[in-house]
Design a protein around this nucleic acid. Sequence first.
RNA 1: GCGGAUGUGGCGUAAUUGGCAGCCGCGCCAGACUUAGGAUCUGGUGCCGAAAGGCGUGGGGGUUCGAGUCCCUUCAUCCGCACCA
Length: 1012
Amino acid sequence: MEYNFREIEKKWQQYWKDNKTFKTYNPTDPEYATSHSGRRGGAPYYVLDMFPYPSGAGLHVGHPLGYIASDIFARYKRLKGFNVLHPMGYDSFGLPAEQYAIQTGQHPEITTKTNIARYREQLDKIGFSFDWSREVRTSDPNYYKWTQWIFIQLFNSWYNKKTNKAENISTLIELFETIGFKGTEDDILTGDLEIYHDGFTVNEWNDFSEATKEQVLQQFRLAYLSDTMVNWCPQLGTVLANEEVKDGVSERGGYPVERKLMKQWSLRITAYADRLLNDLEDIDWTESIKEAQRNWIGKSEGTSLKFKVENQKSKEGMDGEAFIEVFTTRPDTVFGVSFVTLAPEHELVTKITTPAQKKEVEEYVTFAKNRSERERMADVKKITGVFTGAYAIHPFTCKQVPVWIGDYVLAGYGTGAVMAVPAHDSRDFAFAKHFGLDILQVILPPSPLEKGLGDEAFEAKEGTVINSGFLDGLEVKRAIKEAIAVIEEEDLGKGKTNYRLRDAIFGRQRYWGEPIPVYYKDGIPHVLNESELPLILPEVDKYLPTETGEPPLARAKDWKYTPLSGSPHRGEGFDYEYSTMPGWAGSSWYYLRYMDAHNDKEFVSKEAVNYWKNVNLYMGGAEHATGHLLYVRFWTKFLYDLGLIPVIEPAKKLINQGMIQGMSAFVYRLPPLFMWGRDNDKEKYKLPFIFLSKSLNEKLNKKILNLIEIETIKTIAINEFKKLNPHIKEVFSFDLSSCSALHTDVNIVNNNVLDQESFKNWREEYKNAIFITEENGDYICGSEVEKMSKSKWNVVSPDAMVEQYGADCLRLYEMFLGPLELSKPWNTNGITGVSTFIRKLWRLYHNGDVVNIGNEAATKSELKTLHKTIKKITEDIERFSFNTSVSNFMICVNELTEQKCNKREILEPLAIIIAPYSPHIAEELWNILGHTESITYAAFPECKEEYLVESSFNYPISFNGKTRFFQEYERSLPKEQVEKEVLALEQTQKYLEGKIPKKVIVVPNKIVNIVV
RNA sequence: GCGGAUGUGGCGUAAUUGGCAGCCGCGCCAGACUUAGGAUCUGGUGCCGAAAGGCGUGGGGGUUCGAGUCCCUUCAUCCGCACCA
């Protein structure tokens, strides 16, 4: 009996479901003690996949790649005795369901439910060992209740720089009530303050109105409301976070994005910038992700420095006290400053511009402001700017330096002003060259430059400082320190750290997201009481903004906040916040919820989170590098600060599986207008569909078709044309130049060979398609690697693969494809090899149709095969090298087949070690071996080294590093003896050709190398 | 421009610490069986060469008895960031 995967896989999937095989218990669960994990007392191990957004298209073969790998690992850890948490859920709020709702009027919840059901069905077919009892959906009120709860905690917290952690806002109010606030210079200020606040005394604070107090507190809350420049996307009708914008257009949909000032909820992630950066050191994530996060955070250390603006006696508004504050990381080059540049948006621009320059400056500022982000990015190389007419005084040389405006200076970074050092900064250099400004060299490079300083800036942080007064002769790094010291001493500025990271905009003007649990009283935002959660997403008549441009939630009827009885606002109805949370809100803490998914008292219990702690292995795509993975780290640190969880990082280890690209298939159609008859009205013709096989098309393109081939094609084409158009008596012209390549459905192509019958049935117009094939009658398609997408007809769904080859085969094959992290095109060319392997494995346990397991002792070589495999597989799994384990299984089965091994002593452990990879067949074989329980909680066999040791070693004997022949010696034979024996060999003498060896290297049990 | 990753047969890939380059699979070639198939099994298959032998891990150089692996340099492809002072 051949292995019947269809029946067997279904059977075990049902068994797992019926027996709740993968249900995981926390030690506090009553069932824990009697569960497998409880009995074995295994340590907790948490394997998590980044959860999917359930899109309408369903899964394609790329999605399961990571899931299969993590499932193998989870199953392996169970076999090793761990209590494994391996959950799955859905990131079910999001734009596509809402866009669909706008088009069809269908509630996004319905779409989402349907899509989730389809995902579930697809996932189940692949045999994953998820504990579905812990499933979460971010759009479920029982889940988003706690997302809202965390938002309230953020609102009620500020970041205390002294204790370096988030604290309740009450400790800040206490400070205001006891010592007041010194304003912008106060070192309790943190992060990305959009509006600087003046200082105030204790008395002033106490006299502030509630509204003013709240306004002040908004400067400190970790969730706060402020007027912020946002990325507004008109087509999507919402703001987007920085990482949702790529190259000036929205990541989803590719719509233009513009900058707009809006009142917005933001999260003060910048307060955590330093910790987000430093803690990267201690987590085992890929270097590329860490680097992407470092880039995104963009820490740079330097100093601020004030340039006095020269008093212009003639003009009003200039009181002689104006300063331009710049930020620089290169204070060592301060003597090289030859001008100062302001961002067009800089507040001093209007103040300092001289009357003579006024018109020009105003024109320029308008021009710069109206350039969209996209334009600005598109022509980075274009240098624009204008002179203000004003001069600043160099703080050390006291010389005049002109003040310019240039849009290469960003308003949002640093102070929005730079001290320009053209000799040592390429942007300043380009600007100076363009406008003919001075270039002063102040750094002597350590080695002579290839190009002179006249051609490009010398930017490296190395060399010796020259022409620089008190800095002369210092090495660059020393000079930076010295310069900062002097700047601080003379009160010209302060050592300072800047981050590229901006606060995260948290509001979205959309419907399908978590409502922000806030209401407004007298324009002041208040958060809901925790007991009032969840704030349920209300029903609306349309999923569109209101006529007045308010978000969809403003459409909800009678949706007002009425406080709980006993509260001062009784009987009133207040407006809720109408924007909803962004897609990443729910995913920023979901890993915690899985630990305690049904808790209705807390977001996660202390016991549960102290037991599971954080994710041991996190699997997901690299596209979340600066989005989700940064936010989930931020929330984790925040919850840690509040003492709610014991960990500062969400995941100890992170693996990014590679992307599976599509392999598109092409057919080559002869040009439809290659011929015509007497009457040149093509409406009267029916044109045949004639396709040239790949090699003929290539020859055609290279114009190397031979006469016979050309004749054949012509004859076929003309005959077909005549057949279709009997009214045309004569075909006059025939133009055979090039074919058009058409995408064809990859599901009817096998190893580039087109299934011609299926192709004819694929589309009505191809019913009578004619194929001009290769000599063997095959039609060979062309192929190209492209993104997997519906429109390219290259989507391969896992269902089709499971249907044809089975889930085990799909699992093994996806792993066999290559290293997990590598991106590769999906290509089923090799799947038959894996399929054959599974059948071979099955046959090992059978003789013909009957089960054939022997109970006699295994031979030495059988044991060696087994233990060698155990060792390899263990090593492979531990280093996530799943592709190599598949080949090792193949080697093992090939060897055992050769040995005609049917011994239980071998076949039983073999079933266990292969179970994580192909669990269905493993369960069946385990059953055949007489076990009544699932193989899931069997014990992974240990490798016994004694079966692997050989008494002798077959030495490769090499001459000058080239292996010439082999010679076997006892492993214990000493080095000297090996050398002696090798030199005495007849073969050695042959290769020595009478020469005397210069040197003989013997590496015991490795190699012998003779140097001649 | 900066950063990250990857370059090995016709293809996907493999090679603990520097120690037999090409495991395993696909494809291809030959053969067996045959109910002729997209089935199964056996053997072969890096390149050049009739062979002996030579050449081979993107290119060039180096260290070493010995380099796919270490160092320098260079090229190509992919990804991320990008007037971030």
